[in-house]
């Protein structure tokens, strides 16, 4: 499995955020994305996930998203927001909604299925958080719940936008440890975290 993006270019207004950008990641590899605020790190992840428009070529195992089908692409290349929105309902209800998506049944090449609640418990998220409304959860609780749901859907590439920015050091360590061995594109502002994660570093400039 290999995600390859070549010649990516994104213009916002009259500003070119990045141009001629190439990214490649496979199973067990990490690409760390760094750069100042406003350099388009989030837009890059959303573009790779097929959630925002971008110029350039994307392929997963040589297959472009329009051939594969964009929904299937997004299932296999999953984006997790830095600050998951406070949705209506509870995380438990959202899990049910996500697992009812017809698309999930045919997730091919998916990594072994995991139970989101059990996974998030290893990151210190208590079971009771899943039955509380999203609006009542803290930023860190929403972050862990959303990340656990994303991992549980079995994507082949995880696009993580500062996934531990609201977590304490112990939870951060636990998250980093449990995501090892996956294909990751990981945005972080922390030089220490970038070092711990290893892998290639992509620096974006403002």
């Amino acid at each position: 499995m290999r995600l390859r993006a070549t010649g990516l270019r994104r213009v916002v207004g009259d500003r070119t955020l990045w141009s001629g950008l190439d990214i490649e990641v496979g199973r067990g590899e990490v690409v760390v994305v760094r750069g100042p605020s406003g350099s388009g790190k989030t837009l890059l992840l959303r573009a790779l996930a097929g959630l925002d428009p971008v110029e350039g070529d994307l392929t997963l195992d040589g297959v472009p998203p329009h051939t594969m089908g964009w929904s299937r692409w997004r299932r296999r290349v999953c984006y997790v927001a830095q600050d998951p929105p406070a949705l209506a309902g509870t995380p438990e209800e959202f899990v049910r909604q996500v697992s009812s998506l017809g698309a999930q049944a045919v997730a091919e090449g998916a990594t072994a299925a995991v139970e989101p609640m059990a996974l998030a418990a290893t990151w210190g998220l208590g079971e009771e958080a899943w039955t509380r409304p999203w609006t009542e959860l803290s930023g860190g609780e929403r972050q862990r719940a959303a990340l656990a749901i994303a991992v549980a859907t079995g994507p082949e590439v995880l696009l993580l936008d500062e996934p531990t920015s609201a977590l304490d050091p112990a939870a951060t360590d636990a998250v980093e440890a449990s995501l090892q061995g996956r294909a990751l594109v990981w945005v972080t502002h922390s030089a220490e975290q970038a070092e711990r994660l290893g892998g290639r570093v992509l620096e974006l400039s403002a």
């Binding site: 296999r76 949705l87 998506l101 698309a103």
Partner: peptide
């Protein structure tokens, strides 16, 4: 839009 965007990110079709 947040909910719809979140569902799309998890592989939902626009219809779903």
């Amino acid at each position: 839009r947040d909910r719809i965007d979140a569902l799309l990110a998890f592989g939902a079709t626009p219809w779903e």
